[in-house]
Simulated scan of single mutants.
Amino acid sequence: MEDDSLNVFLKDGGTLRIRLRRFSKLWVATHEQRCDFRISASGTVLRWGQLDEDISVRDLMRDAERRHRDERLTSQVPTNFPWDPTPALLSGTHPKLAGRLIDGRFVVGLTAEERFIRWDLCEDLAQQLVPKTLKDAAKYPQNSREVTLRRMRRAIANKEWTERLETDWLMERLRTLLNW
């Protein structure tokens, strides 16, 4: 046990390092209280009797897998792709954000998986628009590249496939793919 994290050593040789901030009772506990724990007979639960805190190793592993998946997905999405194209705000005197309970956590905005799916859709659409844009430019040679791109943007907006921020990103991506 370190001052800011809990290290769980697994039978298979793996290690889970969990920030204590995730567990409020452990975070505010003294070092002695943190060190006073038991492992269940099955080896699946960590128990702090003084703190009345139980932590399931299975839950820790599921959270670690989710964080690893989220990091992998996030690393594939360009940093300039929007995180939350439609923030959910609730009206009232005090500002409020709408959140969703996902796997025991409140999430405001897109999850890493949702963001990856939105980016993948936009990237695929940009790739498909390259030949369509070139065809439109050849059909209307009197139009400048900017006019052609505006025509493409209107067509995308009319379909309502993407949110405004995603459309902005999509048009920049299309411009890059076309070298315009």
Rank of each mutant, 00 (worst) to 15 (best):
100 R>G: 02
31 H>K: 14
150 R>E: 15
117 I>Y: 05
36 D>Q: 14
30 T>F: 06
121 L>T: 00
115 R>F: 07
38 R>T: 11
140 Y>A: 13
141 P>S: 04
159 K>Y: 01
144 S>D: 15
140 Y>E: 14
150 R>W: 07
109 G>R: 10
9 F>T: 03
31 H>V: 11
91 S>H: 13
111 T>L: 09
134 L>S: 08
114 E>P: 07
178 L>N: 10
99 G>S: 14
82 P>G: 03
141 P>R: 06
147 V>F: 12
37 F>V: 00
46 L>G: 06
129 L>T: 02
52 D>C: 05
43 G>R: 07
94 H>L: 13
101 L>I: 14
60 L>R: 09
108 V>L: 12
70 D>L: 05
50 Q>A: 13
157 A>K: 10
167 T>A: 09
101 L>A: 05
130 V>Y: 06
67 R>N: 14
126 A>H: 05
30 T>V: 05
128 Q>I: 02
134 L>V: 11
44 T>I: 00
126 A>M: 07
153 R>A: 10
149 L>I: 14
104 G>W: 12
160 E>A: 14
44 T>L: 09
180 W>V: 05
24 S>M: 06
102 I>D: 06
44 T>M: 08
154 R>P: 01
168 D>P: 08
74 T>G: 01
40 S>A: 12
19 R>G: 05
44 T>R: 10
35 C>L: 14
72 R>W: 04
62 R>H: 05
